[in-house]
């Protein structure tokens, strides 16, 4: 693995946030909190970790990525656009009738999207399937799945975690965007931070915990596969990260954004509106 380009990864995370704010301002509303918390994770994946060819989105040997927390589509599309899958201008059409950029990721419409998601809890199962496909076909791609800490309350996630552990799927890496909030409540009651790693280890996974806004730490955690087991990287994040009045505030899960608020947010990110 090459050393992470920290300034680049930091800059891309910032651009993802700027795209998210601008797109939500145009839309009037959108899933802000969980998009902003995932900015560094997506930056590191798309500009450091994944072996992909944006000019050939369906390259059979590519690493696979699944955004299981599909409501962070805004940040996902921003990362794909920055990486060159489609022009960033297209982000303006998010959710418009006929747009390739649906409210939740749609693999039939958007270049670079490997699996459709949006109904929570389904992404890890598909990731297990993709990692198994690599094993069955003797291919070397790795499969990455970004999970939300709210969606891992879905039972299907634990069915998938159990099977991945049983099958010792070394080719599978999950990243948990542990931003501590779902739409209406704290997630730490369901999954206390001190208990959560043990729950995954109990299902046969290796678990690494990092600051999910530290691109170096994320890159290092993702660079090294686990030995004979699937890997979970618990990325401790802040919902709404990067915009002071959104950070840690559950109401910004999905919320209208005024022009004044957008201007303040962009100013905090260091760009002109």
């Amino acid at each position: 693995m090459t050393a992470p380009d920290v300034p680049l990864l930091t800059e891309i995370a910032k651009r993802i946030r700027v795209h998210v704010i601008r797109t939500v301002l145009r839309l009037g509303s959108g899933h802000l909190g969980g998009s902003l918390s995932a900015a560094e994770i997506l930056s590191v994946l798309y500009f450091h970790t994944l072996r992909i060819r944006p000019e050939e989105p369906d390259w059979p040997g590519r690493d696979r990525f699944i955004l299981s927390k599909g409501h962070a589509a805004l940040a996902y599309y921003a990362a794909l656009a920055e990486r060159g899958y489609f022009p960033p201008d297209e982000l303006a059409g998010f959710g418009a009738l006929g747009s390739r950029l649906q409210g939740h990721p749609d693999m039939r419409r958007t270049p670079g999207v490997d699996m459709s998601t949006g109904s929570l809890g389904q992404g890890l199962s598909a990731g297990v399937g993709m990692a198994l496909a690599a094993r069955i076909r003797g291919e070397g791609w790795r499969t990455y799945v970004l999970l939300g800490d709210g969606e891992i309350q879905e039972g299907q996630v634990w069915e998938a975690a159990m099977l991945a552990g049983e099958l010792r799927l070394t080719g599978l890496t999950a990243i948990l965007d542990f931003n501590r909030l779902s739409q209406t409540r704290s997630t730490t009651g369901a999954h206390p931070p001190d208990l959560l790693p043990g729950r995954w280890r109990g299902f046969g996974w290796e678990v690494r915990e990092v600051d999910g806004h530290d691109v170096s730490a994320l890159a290092a955690a993702l660079d090294r596969p686990a030995d004979g087991r699937p890997l979970l990287v618990v990325a401790h994040t802040v919902k709404g990260r990067g915009v002071s009045f959104m950070e840690g505030r559950p109401e910004w899960h999905s919320h209208p954004l005024t022009r004044e608020q957008a201007e303040q947010a962009l100013a905090e990110l260091g760009v002109r509106p």
Binding site: P60, M107, M115, G127, A131, L132, A133
Partner: peptide, 14 residues
């Protein structure tokens, strides 16, 4: 539920 999801992942890989 997981079985169907795993199948989707397999199918997405040919």
């Amino acid at each position: 539920q997981n079985m169907v999801g795993v199948a989707a992942g397999l199918a997405a890989c040919g």
